[in-house]
Amino acid sequence: MNKENIELNKQTKINVTAKKGISLWGRIGYGLLYLILGIIAIFQIYPLVWLFMFSLKSNSEVFGKSPFALPESPRWENYAKAWTDGSINLYFFNSVWITVVAVVLTVLLASFVTFAITRMNWKYNKLVLGLFMVGLMIPIHSALIPLFDFFNKLNLIDNPISIILAYTAFNLPLTIMILLGFYYTLPREVEEAAVMDGCSVHRIFFQITLPMTTPVISTTVIINMIYNWNEFIFVNTFISSDKYKTLTVGIQNFIGQYLTDWGAIGATLMISIIPILIAFILLSNRIVEGIAAGSVKG
C-alpha cells in the first residue's frame, strides 16, 4: 500500500503541468458545471413531485391528461383510502421490522464473510467467495417454486421468517461484493498493529474493522433497506395472512381484476416512501461521518 502511494506521488509530480489560480474560464467552467449538475438534480427530484401529484389524481386524470398537470381537485381521499382500504397501518409496522431484521442480519453476516475472506489466511477463500458470487446470478423467478416447496416442508409458509431468510440469502452476495471492494481498499496497517498488540480476531473485527468500514456499511444498509422495503414477489408468494403482509402488498390491494385504482396506488407509494426517505437521509450522513471517525483511528 505505502509503496504504491509513493509511486503515485512520483507520477503525479511528473505529470503536473497545471497552472494555479481561478481564471475567467475557470469561473465559466464552474458555472457550466453547476448548470449541468442542477439540471441533473431536477431530473432526479422530479419523480417525487410527480408521484405526489399522481397520488392526488383520479384514474381519468392519471391517464390521458399531461403528467405535468396539477390535479383538478386534489383527492386527499386517496390517502384516506390507502390508509384504511389498503390496510396500510397494519402493513407499515411489518415492513419496518422485517426490513430492519433482514438488513441487520444481512450486513452482519456479509461483514463476517468479507472479513474472513480478505483479512484471514486460509486456502479456500477464493472458492468460498466464488460460491457467494454465484448467488448473484440466479433469476428470482427460478427460485420461487423451489423456495416455496422448501419453506412449506419446514412449515415456514405464512411466517415472516421465510421472507427474512429469503431477503438475507438473496442480498448476501450483493452485499459481500460491495463490501469486498472496500475491504481491499482499506489500509491494513491498523489491523496488523492490533495483531502485534495481541488483540483477538473478534476484537479486531468488532472494534477496528467494523468502525473503519462504517461508510460502506451505511451504503450496504441503504441498498439492502431499499431492496427489502420495495420487495413484493417473496411476500406475495410466501405470506398469505394479512397480519404478516408488508407495504408493497398494500399496492396489490388496489389492482383489481379489470380496474386498477391508480390514485390510491400513488398515495400508497407516497406514504411508503416517507420513512425510507428519512432513514436514507440519516444514513447517508453516516457515510461522511463514518469516514471521519475511521480516519481518526487510522
Partner: peptide, 19 residues
C-alpha cells in the same frame, strides 16, 4: 386476496407444491 397478476403467479406456485 391477491391482485390479478399476483393471483395467477401464486396459484401456479401453490399448485406446484400441491398446496
Amino acid at each position: 386476496i391477491l391482485g390479478n397478476e399476483q393471483y395467477k403467479e401464486k396459484l401456479k406456485v401453490l399448485s406446484a407444491s400441491n398446496e
